[in-house]
C-alpha cells in the first residue's frame, strides 16, 4: 500500500472528507445526509490515512482509542434520548431550542441533533475500530 499516489491523494482527500462529513452531519436534518453517512465518511478518512501512512499515524491523528469513541458516541445518543424524561416527558421526546438568527432564519437545535451527533461518533469509532483491528492483526501476522 505504499503508493505515492495514495499518499498524495490522502493528504488532500482527508481534510475534504472530514469537512464533507461534518457538512453531512449538520445538514442531515434538512437534506440528504445525517449522522450515519457523516460518521462513515469521517471513518473513511481515517481508514485512508491508515492505509496510506500506516496504522500508528492514523491512531495518532485520532488521538483517542476508537473504543472510547464508540462508547462515548453511544452514551451521547442514549443520554439525549433520556433527556426528555428529566422534564417529565416521554422517553426520547424531542426537546428544541429555537433562535431566530437575523439574516439566516430560524436556527433550531434539539436533542435529535445530539442524538445524531452520538450516531456520528459511534459510527466513526466503529469504522476505525474494525479497520484498525484488522490492519493490526494483519501486521502482527506479517511479522510472525
Amino acid at each position: 500500500m505504499n503508493s505515492v499516489i495514495l499518499r498524495t491523494g490522502t493528504v488532500y482527500l482527508r481534510p475534504l472528507l472530514l469537512i464533507f462529513s461534518v457538512f453531512l452531519l449538520l445538514g442531515g436534518h434538512n437534506q440528504p445526509g445525517g449522522g450515519f453517512t457523516g460518521g462513515l465518511v469521517a471513518g473513511l478518512a481515517f481508514v485512508l490515512e491508515a492505509l496510506a501512512f500506516g496504522l500508528d499515524q492514523a491512531r495518532r491523528t485520532l488521538r483517542v482509542h476508537p473504543l472510547t469513541l464508540v462508547g462515548c458516541g453511544l452514551l451521547l445518543s442514549a443520554m439525549s434520548a433520556f433527556f426528555s424524561t428529566l422534564l417529565g416527558k416521554p422517553f426520547m421526546t424531542g426537546t428544541w431550542w429555537v433562535w431566530h438568527v437575523p439574516g439566516w432564519g430560524e436556527l433550531a437545535v434539539g436533542t435529535p441533533f445530539f442524538f445524531d451527533l452520538g450516531v456520528y461518533f459511534d459510527v466513526l469509532g466503529v469504522t476505525c475500530l474494525i479497520i484498525f483491528s484488522l490492519l493490526n492483526a494483519g501486521e502482527a501476522e506479517g511479522k510472525t
Binding site: 434538512n30 426520547m92 424531542g94 434539539g110
Partner: peptide, 13 residues
C-alpha cells in the same frame, strides 16, 4: 420535528 429531510427525521426522531 424541525427537519425537512423526512428520512432523517424518521431515523432520529
Amino acid at each position: 420535528a424541525h427537519g425537512k429531510n423526512v428520512v432523517n427525521v424518521i431515523l432520529v426522531d
